[in-house]
């Protein structure tokens, strides 16, 4: 403790001149370089198969759902919380959306989004009111969502209303994502919601002492995240045409993508929304590339895990972690 907190000592480790002066820019560049490295590696390793037009389109389509979830999770992470319920809520919103679609297809999208919003609100509300860390509540919600969705899917075949099938084109997915990203970017960079969420992540005590309504802004973040997960639910329904099993591991894919994109899991002002795109692309390319190299899917999971650990080890803001402990 004493060693690390000594005034003016802990935050300045002697690094040779160039790196020290440019470390801020280098840190920003690393995710970009990672993206280029992954792209180049798989292009070479697969003998060009990974960069065919067909495959690139596949990679992008896979990335869209991860990235949409990533936008939402970024708001939550930026204020220092974590949400593990993404996969469970995604499955539930897809199931409820499809069920509602049986009455009227017009209900599908609203019900998908509403499901996400309700669960986001529940998680945030319990987190703020009961002062339980959001990660624990979302853990419960994850199992609840997976369990309930799994039960319904097992008893009833869940299909997307037929009218939506014409929407299943790459252009639609990209357009939806572009609109969502631009809106989210504005909220994140140009409104109090984005700024205060990052301020809370930087120093929650200081935020409270400055009179920021911390609870309210945390709830906003979860509502935004819920909305996006609801949309994710619809997009995944659209892509697969129905739900056959509850999504598992989706939340971890999203989390890994954000970390790969350069977001620190501790939140704060350093969080940038562009990490969502960079990380989503890296993860999607990696998953796709490993499949092309016919790596077994169990190994793919293990490789993802290792890369996650390595990235967190590099990007975690240790100094602050120590202050918290």
């Amino acid at each position: 403790m004493k060693q690390t907190q000594h005034e003016g000592v802990a935050n300045q480790t002697p690094v040779s001149g160039f790196f020290r002066k440019n470390s801020r820019y280098l840190a920003k560049l690393i995710p970009f370089l990672g993206l280029i490295a992954v792209f180049t590696f798989f292009a070479l390793a697969t003998g060009g198969r990974s960069v065919s037009m067909y495959n690139l389109r596949l990679v992008l389509l896979q990335a869209v759902i991860i990235m949409t979830g990533g936008i939402g999770l970024t708001f939550v992470i930026s204020h220092g919380s974590m949400d593990l319920s993404l996969g469970g809520v995604l499955s539930l919103s897809a199931v409820f959306g499809a069920l509602a679609g049986e009455y009227s297809p017009a209900l599908t999208i609203p019900v998908c989004i509403l499901t996400g919003v309700v669960f986001g609100f529940l998680t945030a509300g319990m987190h703020v009111l009961l002062r339980i860390p959001a990660i624990l509540i979302s853990f419960t919600v994850m199992f609840f969502g997976r369990g309930l969705a799994g039960t319904i899917v097992a008893k009833k075949s869940i299909r997307l209303p037929f009218v939506f099938y014409s929407l299943d084109t790459p252009l639609f997915y990209f357009a939806v994502f572009a609109v969502l990203f631009i809106l989210a970017y504005i909220v994140f960079e140009y409104t109090k919601i984005g700024k205060y969420n990052r301020a809370i992540g930087s120093n929650i005590t200081a935020a409270v002492m400055s009179g920021i309504k911390v609870g309210r802004y945390k709830i906003f973040a979860f509502l935004i995240s819920g909305t996006l997960i609801g949309i994710c639910g619809f997009l995944s329904l659209l892509r697969t045409g129905g739900v056959t099993s509850a999504a598992s591991g989706f939340e971890f894919d999203v989390m890994i993508s954000l970390v790969l994109g350069g977001i620190s899991l501790t939140g704060g002002t350093s969080v940038k929304l562009r990490s969502v795109i960079i990380g989503g692309l890296i993860l999607s390319m990696m998953g796709n590339g490993l499949v092309l190299l016919s790596v077994e899917s169990a190994y793919v999971q293990a490789i993802k895990g290792l890369i996650f650990l390595a990235t967190v080890a590099i990007s975690y803001q240790r100094k602050r972690g120590e202050i918290i402990s």
Binding site: Y190, K192, N203, A206, I212, G268, T269, I323
Partner: peptide
């Protein structure tokens, strides 16, 4: 520990309480 966001920039700290002053509608 109670006043500053130490890892955030000087600007982010200074303008934190003045965002209402700097916005038109919701846009800062």
């Amino acid at each position: 520990s109670e006043g500053l966001m130490t890892l955030a920039g000087i600007q982010d700290n200074i303008v934190l309480m003045s965002l209402d002053k700097l916005k038109t509608g919701f846009w800062i």
